[in-house]
Design a protein around this nucleic acid. Structure first.
Length: 599
RNA sequence: GGGGUAGUAGUUCAGAUUGGUUAGAACGCCGGCCUGUCACGCCGGAGGCCGCGGGUUCGAGUCCCGUCUACCCCGCCA
C-alpha cells in the first residue's frame, strides 16, 4: 500500500495560488484554519506558513473519493491534512481581502495526516489569550502568523549578517560554551563538573576573551552568531539566554569598526524592509547624551531635551533648589509643551513616575502670560522665572517640571519622564528608525569606593587618557561605543587593550590583586605578551534588533522558545529538580529548606 | 530584594463599591438545519474547586491575612 505522500508531492504553498493557476491540478498540505459548513457545501481555509487557500468541498464536483463529502464534514480546526484538487475561479464570489481570494481549490482527494484536539486557545492572527497560556503551548502559538513572520525575519537577519560579514572578509568561529567562571560583570550560569568534583564551568556571558585570543592568533576578522547567558533578572528586552552578533577585528580604530557596523545595519534594514537607513549615523558623547536625554540610550525620535537650571536657582529663596545646588547636586528639568492639557491627576502620575527612580518629587509649574501657576510658582522669583523660561524655551501654556537631586537620580528619572511624555503626547513616529552612536564612555564607575568597569575590563582607554588612570581614573574615557536605535541599546563594543602592562594596571584598579588577576585571567595576560595586534570589536543584540525590526514590544515575541520573567520555560517546565543519582554523580548536596521548594 | 497590575466556563471578560435565590455574556466546543461562505447564518446543548491556603461571618467570587503564577517597572544586567 502506498501512502498519500508517496503518491503526491506538494506542488504549491497555500499562500501562492492566484488566477494564473486556474485549471491546474495542485497538491497542498497544511492545517485546517477555519471551516464554514453550509450543509451541502463546505468551505475549509487551509493554512501553512505562507498563507491561506480556500478549499470548496462540493457534492457536484468530480469525486474520486465517494466518501469525500462525508469526510470533509468531519474536518476540524488544526487538523493536519493534504489535498489534491483543481484550482478554480471563485467567479462572482471573489474575496478582495485575501491574497488568494480570486481562486479556490476543489479537492478530489483528502488525506487526514492527523486529527487535533480542540486547541486551548483559538489560533488566529490577533489573539487575546494570555501569554502564560500561549507560552505553555508555544508550538501552537507559533502557528500564528505574527510569530511565524517574526521568526522568519529573524532567520533573514541571520542570513544577511552572515553574507555581509563573509563578503567583508570575516570568518565565522565557534567558541566554548563550557567556560571558566570569571569575576566582574553579570552573575554566571554554572555547570557542575562530574569529572572534577567541586569544580564548575560557567556558560559564557559573551565570548569576549576567546575572540581576543583569535585576534592574537592572527585571524584578523572574526564573527559569530552566538548564545550568551547572564543570570540576572529579566525585562521585556532581557532574557537569561540571548543571541549576539559578535565581531572582532585587528588593526582598527573605532572609526573602522563603526563603518563596518553601519554597513551591516544598512544591509539588514535594506534586506528586511527595503529601507535605506542612510549611514553614517549621528554621534553623541556619553556626557552629552546624559546631559540632554538623561540616559545613554536616548530615543531621538522626539525632542523634549533636559535643561540644567542649577546655576539659575543656586541662590534661590526656594531652599529645595538652592540647597540642592549648594550640596553639589543639580536641578534639571523638562519643558512640557502645552503641558496645561494635562489634568492634575496626570501630573500626579508624572510625579509618581519619577519617584520610582528615587526622586523625592517633581517640582512643577504652568507658565502663563503674566506669571506661573502651580506648586512652585510662589517660591521662584520673577527674575529666576524669566531666566528659566529663556533657558528652557518655555512659553505660555507649557509646564516646566524639575527634579532636584544627585545626577544619579535626576538623569534616569528625567530620562524616563521623556519617554512617558512622548507616549502621552504621541510624539513618536513608529515608522521611524533613529540610530545614534554613543561614544566616550567613562572607563569606570564607582560604587562604595570601588571602581568597576563601565564596559568590561578589556576596554582600552583613549590614548590621551592613559595617564589619567593613575591620578583620576574616574575621568578617564574609554574607546567604547554603543549603537542605540529608538531608545534601545542594540550593540556595544570597544577597542581592547593590547598591552599586557596596561591590562594588568586595569585589573589592579578594579581591585584584583596580582595573584587574582593571574588566577582568573592568566592565560589572557600570557597571550598578550606574544605580539598582540591592536584590535577591537562589537556585539549586537540579535533579539533586540529583530524586536525593533518586527515592531514587537518584547523579545519573547522574536525568540522561538522564550523564558518567563522568572526565567522559567512554561512548556518544557524548566528548570526542574533532578534525581538524587544525578546529584551524587556531581558530588553535590542540596542545602535548601524542603518546605520552601515547590515541586 | 522592592513596587504595580492581573488571576471567575476551553478562551476573553462582567459580577466585587453595598457579603444573601440557580455566578452571566461573547467567542470556542458538541448536536441539528442550511449550496457561495469567507467573523457564514439559524435552532438547541454541554461546560465553573470564582488561582491556592487560612480567617471573619448564620452566610464569602465579594471583606481580611498569607501564598503561588504571569506581565510591567526599580535594584541588578561589565
Amino acid at each position: 500500500m502506498t501512502t498519500f505522500l508517496e503518491e503526491h508531492r506538494r506542488t504549491h504553498m497555500c499562500g501562492e495560488l492566484d488566477e494564473s493557476n486556474i485549471g491546474e491540478e495542485v497538491t497542498l498540505m497544511g492545517w485546517v484554519s477555519k471551516r464554514r459548513d453550509l450543509g451541502r457545501m463546505i468551505f475549509i481555509d487551509l493554512r501553512d506558513r505562507t498563507g491561506i487557500t480556500q478549499l470548496r468541498f462540493d457534492p457536484y464536483g468530480d469525486d474520486e473519493d465517494t466518501d469525500l463529502e462525508e469526510r470533509a464534514g468531519e474536518l476540524r480546526p488544526e487538523w493536519c491534512i493534504g489535498i489534491v484538487g483543481q484550482v478554480v475561479s471563485r467567479g462572482a464570489n471573489i474575496n478582495p481581502d485575501m491574497a488568494t481570494g480570486a481562486i479556490e481549490v476543489v479537492p478530489t482527494k483528502l488525506e487526514v495526516f492527523s486529527r487535533a484536539e480542540t486547541p486551548p486557545f483559538v489560533i488566529r492572527d490577533e489573539t487575546d489569550a494570555k501569554e502564560e497560556l500561549r507560552l505553555e503551548h508555544r508550538y501552537l502559538d507559533l502557528r500564528r502568523k505574527p510569530l511565524q513572520q517574526a521568526l522568519l525575519t529573524r532567520s533573514k537577519v541571520n542570513a544577511l549578517t552572515r553574507n555581509y560579514l563573509l563578503d567583508t572578509g570575516f570568518a565565522e568561529f565557534e567558541t566554548p560554551v563550557l567556560n571558566r567562571s570569571t569575576p566582574e560583570g553579570a552573575r554566571d550560569y554554572l555547570v557542575p563538573s562530574r569529572i572534577h568534583p567541586s569544580k564548575f564551568y560557567a556558560l559564557p556571558q559573551s565570548p569576549q576573551i576567546f575572540k581576543q585570543l583569535l585576534m592574537i592568533s592572527g585571524f584578523d576578522r572574526y564573527f559569530q552568531i552566538v548564545k550568551c547567558f547572564r543570570d540576572e533578572d529579566l525585562r521585556a528586552d532581557r532574557q537569561p539566554e540571548f543571541t549576539q552578533i559578535d565581531m572582532e577585528m585587528s588593526f582598527v580604530t573605532p572609526e573602522d569598526v563603526i563603518e563596518i557596523c553601519e554597513g551591516l545595519i544598512a544591509t539588514i534594514f535594506e534586506g528586511v524592509h527595503g529601507i535605506d537607513v542612510q549611514p553614517p549615523f549621528e554621534r553623541l558623547s556619553y556626557d552629552e547624551s546624559m546631559a540632554r536625554f538623561g540616559v545613554d540610550n536616548p530615543d531621538l525620535r522626539f525632542d523634549l531635551e533636559i535643561t540644567d537650571v542649577s546655576e539659575i536657582v543656586a541662590e534661590s529663596d526656594f531652599r529645595v533648589f538652592s540647597g540642592t545646588v549648594s550640596r553639589g547636586d543639580v536641578v534639571r528639568g523638562l519643558c512640557i509643551p502645552e503641558g496645561n492639557q494635562l489634568s492634575r491627576k496626570e501630573v500626579d502620575e508624572l510625579e509618581e513616575s519619577v519617584k520610582v527612580y528615587g526622586a523625592k518629587g517633581l517640582a512643577w509649574s504652568e507658565v502663563q502670560e503674566e506669571d506661573w501657576k502651580g506648586p512652585i510658582a510662589n517660591f521662584i522669583s520673577a527674575d529666576e522665572k524669566k531666566a528659566i523660561e529663556e533657558a528652557m524655551g518655555a512659553s505660555p501654556g507649557d509646564i516646566v517640571a524639575f527634579i532636584a537631586d544627585s545626577t544619579d537620580v535626576v538623569c534616569p528619572a528625567l530620562g524616563n519622564l521623556r519617554d512617558v511624555l512622548a507616549k502621552r503626547f504621541d510624539l513618536i513616529d513608529e515608522s521611524e528608525y533613529r540610530f545614534c552612536w554613543i561614544t566616550d564612555f567613562p572607563m569606570f564607575e564607582e560604587e562604595d569606593g570601588q571602581l568597576h568597569s563601565m564596559h568590561h575590563p578589556f576596554t582600552s582607554p583613549r590614548p590621551e587618557d592613559v595617564e589619567l588612570l593613575d591620578e583620576s581614573p574616574l575621568e578617564a574615557r574609554a574607546q567604547a561605543y554603543d549603537l542605540v536605535l529608538n531608545g534601545h541599546e542594540i550593540g556595544g563594543g570597544s577597542i581592547r587593550i593590547h598591552r599586557q602592562d596596561v591590562q594588568a594596571r586595569i585589573f589592579e584598579l578594579l581591585g584584583l590583586s596580582e595573584g587574582e588577576a593571574r588566577d582568573k585571567f592568566g592565560f589572557l595576560l600570557d597571550a598578550l605578551q606574544y605580539g598582540t595586534p591592536p584590535h577591537g570589536g562589537i556585539a549586537f543584540g540579535m533579539d533586540r534588533l529583530v524586536m525593533i525590526l518586527t515592531g514587537a514590544d518584547s523579545i519573547r515575541q522574536v525568540i522561538a522558545f522564550p523564558k518567563t520573567t522568572q526565567a522559567s520555560d512554561l512548556m518544557a517546565k524548566a528548570p526542574s529538580r533532578i534525581d538524587e543519582e544525578q546529584l551524587r554523580e556531581l558530588s553535590l548536596r542540596l542545602d535548601v529548606d524542603e518546605d520552601a521548594v515547590e515541586e
